[in-house]
Design a protein around this nucleic acid. Sequence first.
DNA 1: TAGTGGTCTAGACCACGCC
DNA 2: GCGTGGTCTAGACCACTAC
Lengths: 262, 262
Amino acid sequence: MPAQGTALLGALDPTSDRAVFRQIADQLREAIDKGRFKEGDKLPSETELVEHYGVSRMTVRNSLSVLQGEGLVVSEHGKGVFVRPRPPVRRLASDRFARRHREQGKSAFTVEAEAAGSRPEVDSLEVKEERPSQDIATRLGGARRVLARRRRYLLDGRPVEFATSYIPLDLATGTPIAQSNPGPGGIYARLEELGHRLDHFDEEIRARMPSPQEVKTLRLASGVPVIHLTRTAHDTEGRVVEVCDTVMAADAYVLNYQLPAT
Amino acid sequence: MPAQGTALLGALDPTSDRAVFRQIADQLREAIDKGRFKEGDKLPSETELVEHYGVSRMTVRNSLSVLQGEGLVVSEHGKGVFVRPRPPVRRLASDRFARRHREQGKSAFTVEAEAAGSRPEVDSLEVKEERPSQDIATRLGGARRVLARRRRYLLDGRPVEFATSYIPLDLATGTPIAQSNPGPGGIYARLEELGHRLDHFDEEIRARMPSPQEVKTLRLASGVPVIHLTRTAHDTEGRVVEVCDTVMAADAYVLNYQLPAT
DNA sequence: TAGTGGTCTAGACCACGCC
DNA sequence: GCGTGGTCTAGACCACTAC
């Protein structure tokens, strides 16, 4: 039995109007969808596909780039093209900011990741004063200067999320919020200790393709979008006490929300 | 003054390690980001770029395909490559399923679209009995047969969303829910009239690149992801009365949610 | 008819991973 | 060293749009 994966593929239809590279992409996609190639499996090499279909190499590469754009395969230089493994997803629950979750020694991310059997890391820490962008300033009710807290979250060594919190400077200066490590329960716990009792959070969700910078920071495979989440924290007096801007690898997340029927 | 858009572009750096097609993509991206090419503007033609940079056409096309994958440009056969226009977004509010919104003559989609100055349409209506997929069956608490209601939503002629509602057959048979048009307030209003008082909805959100079928149905440009939303409707007795599976063009939506702090 | 992007060929040389 | 994918060339012909 030949090790050639092309045994799993059919022939081209020369009478079809469909472009050759699309026909090849269709056949590979179908083979993946039907499980003939499984997660992590190596596809036939470009050379094998060239021989199997009797087309030029550029045509084969065009097919593969279609599948890459769909997020179905990833290529690894010098090794081959592989069916993209689906990473474990992180589920964000609708009660993830409930007060009871802030009464622990570790950060919510750490606790939750360890419970799920993953190894959590946080890096790229940066805490500095800034002038906010127009959009952030508006959300913060017109703040002129803010404290920006940037960090990147990783699970088992893989970056999954990059987040920046913006806090009005008058709330943060001289408090643990301005420290690298704000302490147990995070900045929300500190804000409450400072008398800003949290009332609710508004979250705004978009999805889009990543910028080259985001591809780098999150080490995204091609064909993986990002979820862009902007959260606004309101205290019981109606003041906005924080805006958090988060960019997540879309293949690493499922977001859950609960909506009232009343 | 030449009409050539290449006047806005620089030269290549032959000493750079960065691939030529990436350098070209970088320059075009920067010109777009800085507004030198605006939404809807035509980029220089492939021929002009070939002449400007002194490279082969395939190299230029490679650059353009990078930008397409990022969702920055769209190509139109016979016309040119254009900076992708950002369509108006539809905002889904966190109170969109409040009971008061169900007490109107028109569907929520229609009311909201007209309020926003858009022309709403709903098509691809299909209402039929089915055996549910494993996933849907589980969410519905093990239903063996369901009523599936499929429809596509358009704004100003542009498809933005494709949705399928699954209702346990015993709840739907012989009721307006099994009709093409379930009447004012939609199936949620009918379910409540039938004594299933709605308690809350759970929504589960993912983002990913579309399948070829979804590209067709939603007429998606390349580089536009989809938001995949699965909603589960619970009544006050704890029963799941509907699961709604929705695929949305990600560039047409912003989702809003409110999270409690307590 | 002229200009545009879409498809395809048949090569070439390079960079990476692995043995 | 060999097989893999990454980059690039210099053509060709086709299909679509606009005039």
